[in-house]
């Protein structure tokens, strides 16, 4: 019985989501290996070898894997899976893209987005946008799982796993990377931040998000947005918190000018402390907020910034 965790990375940095995934995997009490698939990704392999509780890091370093496209990485993972009982990845867009393809190649089900490990074959996962929790037993001998990273703490980084190269190369003639537009920010990533301040339609326009950014800089916080704000074109989609955006669970979540639609709540209701700032006292967000402030956000935000 052994576990293969797929590393989430950009060829330079191991993403924090991998640490939460390893922690989820460790609850199965089996030896854990991390697989790093990429190109020129030795730095990632070294970071992965420091993750606590990991025995081995396998590194498939080849130009064919530069953009980690699912067509060939899934074949590689499925091939390596013969030595493992579990294949586990973070429920990020990369994990969601690749792992079902692996499961189908292995002719097994995938258990998506688990939030708890009940036993070696039984897991809890949210369904209906988190409005219900299903307990699911896998009947397959090999288990392919994605992890909702916000539901698990991060593993430590005091390990010293051995790094083993993996020379298997699968070419990909079917799909080709064209371009990427990645948001560049000095602030922490949404899914890794301990404090998040998010804006909704009430922000009025994209420029007003600078009011949130000033508060965020005081708090070392990430800046998020509701779907309404993204759909209105205020900010790009990578900032969206919610059922179809990022699922987050920071220590502090400050919702500003967000009414609190079910689909937004699905992405943030597991935050430890929720603050809602909205001038509409009937807004549903107040029903789940620990601290509510009924006020005009354009007056509140500058004052909040000055008091921090």
């Amino acid at each position: 019985m052994a576990i293969l965790v797929i590393a989430e990375h950009d060829n330079q940095q191991l993403k924090p989501a991998t640490l939460n995934t390893v922690n989820a995997a460790s609850q199965l009490n089996q030896p854990i290996s991390i697989l790093v698939i990429g190109s020129d990704c030795q730095a990632v392999a070294e970071q992965a070898s420091a993750v606590s509780g990991v025995d081995t890091v396998l590194v498939a370093d080849n130009a064919a894997y530069q953009h980690q496209l699912a067509e060939n990485t899934a074949k590689l993972i499925a091939e390596l899976a013969s030595d493992f009982d579990y294949v586990i990845a973070a429920g990020t867009t990369t994990g969601k893209n690749t792992l079902p393809r692996v499961a189908a190649l292995l002719d097994v089900a995938q258990i998506s987005d688990i939030v708890a490990v009940k036993s070696a074959d039984t897991f809890v996962r949210p369904i209906y946008a988190g409005n219900a929790l299903a307990t699911i037993q896998s009947l397959d001998s090999k288990k392919v799982i994605t992890v909702r990273t916000s539901a698990f703490d991060a593993a430590g980084t005091d390990g010293s796993a051995t790094i083993t190269p993996c020379g298997l190369v699968h070419a990909n003639a079917q799909s080709e990377f064209v371009s990427e537009e990645l948001a560049v920010s000095e602030r922490p990533e949404l899914t890794a931040a301990s404090v998040i301040i998010s804006g909704g339609r009430g922000m009025g326009n994209g420029e007003n998000f600078s009011l949130l950014e000033k508060v965020a800089d005081k708090l070392g916080a990430a800046v998020g947005a509701s779907r309404a704000a993204v759909d209105a074109g205020f900010v790009p989609n990578d900032m969206q918190v919610g059922q179809t955006g990022k699922i987050v669970a920071p220590d502090l979540y400050i919702a500003v000018g967000i009414s609190g639609a079910i689909q937004h709540q699905a992405g943030m209701k597991d935050s430890k402390v929720i603050v809602a700032i909205n001038k509409d006292e009937e807004a549903p967000i107040f029903q789940i907020a620990d601290y509510g402030l009924v006020a005009d956000l354009f007056e509140v935000l500058p004052e909040l910034e000055s008091l921090l």
């Binding site: 307990t135 603050v275 789940i288 509510g292 402030l293 909040l304």
Partner: peptide, 30 residues
């Protein structure tokens, strides 16, 4: 069958907390 549904439960409910009157009170509480 590759999976079996053992049960479905409602998620833990959050309840509304307190309303604060000012930004200063909010910062103090946090």
């Amino acid at each position: 069958a590759h999976t079996q549904l053992l049960g479905v439960n409602p998620p833990p409910q959050r309840s509304a907390g307190v309303k604060v009157k000012s930004v200063a009170e909010l910062v103090d509480k946090l």
